[in-house]
Design a protein around this nucleic acid. Structure first.
Lengths: 211, 211, 211, 211
DNA sequence: AATGAATGAGTGTTCATTCAT
DNA sequence: TATGAATGAACACTCATTCAT
């Protein structure tokens, strides 16, 4: 066997490896969405058309696979936030909230663990920065009351996640009603909100808490 | 031994049994709160200071224990709703939402889904009736917009539960901020909410769904 | 309380104790017959109308209760054998085999353990002596071939026990057909049986074997 | 790695798997023989030198393992019956009874009830058909009385099983004496047997009874 | 002496992870 | 490298036995 052939084989293997990785992530997303996080790894491997050994070659533990899935979701959120910045008149925030909620609703399952993210996670930092911009613009256009903070929006998304997890099987877009109520709550008002917002540090701690 | 002494002994035994029952429910609430519903029965028994056999003497299955816990919470909610009816000027609803959320925050986790309740459950029927009254009165006093339904309030509580579960360890009353936002959303407004509410049947299905 | 009253109470208790004993044995016989030896002690106590504690006061272990039941069966067998000696013309043996099989069929359940008897057990010694007499008389009247031994009869009863255990639920008197075949085998014949009989010592070992 | 090498590996894996399967069946047969069907799966796995997980990979439940054992015995019985058809002069039946009893004696206990067999089981149908032929031929050669039925032979084997279970540890071939007696009972005689035989339907019910 | 609540070792079964092939 | 067979700790649940009342 020649060197180039060996390298070709290597390259081939690398490509296969990458393919397997994507295959596994997609399979896991689907299986978790259908059966919840309690689904077995064997099931995921089968859905991906590989053996469990291959799964464990790509991801050291089931938890790591979930973390990867969460990372993917975060990247998607970041992309959605970026797209929302193109919406004019301060309505990007609303667009983002709707789009990211819809995405969560379609990819439920790994979401219970949307914690366990390091606060230094690059995608997290990015999406936060973008959301801060969307929020500022929304306030600037008078779409959102001045006393709303970025941490309020984080909490808002946790709240929608709770609704999605609870209702998805029976009423897949019930969350839209809840979002409508939340948006109504965000609108400008003379009455101040009745409690201080979470601090950024608290939010970071929540995300990092592995419980 | 006299009859009264015998009865005393009987009562004593019964009291012990009842004590153990309460002990087990309390232990289960705590352990589930700390570790989630996946916590083992052995752990719960240990926390209650009894053997697993005793747990199974009181509750035929783990699921039955959970159901009992849920029932207890429901009873408490019903009591809180009843108390809230005494608040004047249509502000009972707000009082109820705050009180029941605070109760959940203190007893978090026992009930990741407020699980497996029959729609015919008497306590559920009662609490729903009371909440409907609180809602009607709030509307009547102009505290709440006309297009809010009882199912919106159910969803609202699911959403608060999601926030509580996520934040409790780090920011035990962060949910108050979220509730403030929700209450702001409930206030009268000329703009209609952007999505139809869940139907009662859907809510019933969600509650009965064992997933 | 006077001494005589105390003694009266004592006597009362003694009578109750004996009553309870019989009650428990009867209950155990019935429950084992219905559900097999795997039936729980709680079930037996309930059938006897007492608590498990009382059962354990009378019998140190479940196994001891079974042993007592076995002893009762043995006593009954002995009585049946005695009655059979009154049958004329050497047909007492046949009578005994039929009667003891019928008794076993009605009291199945403890019988799987009709071993575990000490070879010195008085009732066992008695029934053996009587059966030996019945066998000798049957031979004397030409009802049974000469080369049949007492140990053959023991084995014969094990064989019937096996048939009873297997068929009782579906065909409660199928054993009668099997006994008819065995009796036909016992009839005189010029052809010798093809294998030496068990020794008495072997039978004793089988009975004493706790496996 | 070449395809043939890969297939070799595959075959190797499959052979190992099959080996483990046989190992487990043999271990189960032995453990059940020694301790009865109540023996734990852990014990069986240990006897086979594997973990419980492996046992459960091969057999979905303990019951399935037992069923497999029973099936194996049935297949063996069928083979023995087939061999016996080669014996001339109507003595094949006797040969079969001896051979199948000897087999049971060596594999005792695996099957306290020859358990849970569907009456449609192919091996059962086969062995029955062959035994019917052996019986007809035995009658034709005047070796067996005319009023003996196939169900009598089934009961006969249950009876031998009872004797084997009882005596095997102490007198491993005591059953031969019992079989001799049974064979004597099968010989032609003018006196009819004293009870009707079991029906085929009753036998089927006994086999299917899981008690 | 009688009760039945309490016990905990044991059961059959599952599943994340490892490792021989 | 990819496979899936093997592993064994963990799970929910049972039951013979003990012991406070």
């Amino acid at each position: 066997m020649t060197i180039s052939a060996a390298m070709g084989a290597q390259r081939q293997l690398r490509r296969d490896a990458a393919e397997n990785r994507e295959l596994l992530l997609a399979a896991a997303a689907q299986v978790f969405a259908e059966q919840g996080l309690a689904a077995g790894v064997e099931e995921i491997a089968r859905a991906a058309g590989v053996g469990v050994g291959t799964l464990y070659r790509r991801f050291p533990t089931k938890e790591a696979l979930v973390a990867e899935l969460v990372q993917d979701v975060l990247e998607k959120m970041s992309a959605l936030a970026d797209e929302a910045t193109l919406v004019p008149s301060g309505q990007g925030l609303e667009r983002y909230l709707e789009a990211s909620s819809a995405y969560q609703a379609e990819h439920r399952g790994c979401l219970p663990k949307l914690w366990n993210i390091s606060p230094d996670n690059e995608a997290l930092v990015r999406v936060r920065r973008t959301i801060a911009r969307l929020l500022a613009e929304a306030k600037h256009h008078g779409q959102v009351r001045e006393d709303v903070t970025a941490t309020d929006l984080t909490m808002l998304m946790w709240s929608i996640r709770g609704v999605i997890e609870t209702t998805r099987d029976i009423a897949p877009d019930a969350w839209r009603r809840h979002l409508a109520l939340l948006l109504a709550g965000l609108r400008p008002s003379s009455a101040p909100l009745g409690h201080r917002p979470m601090t950024r540090a608290q939010v970071d701690q929540v995300l990092a808490d592995p419980s």
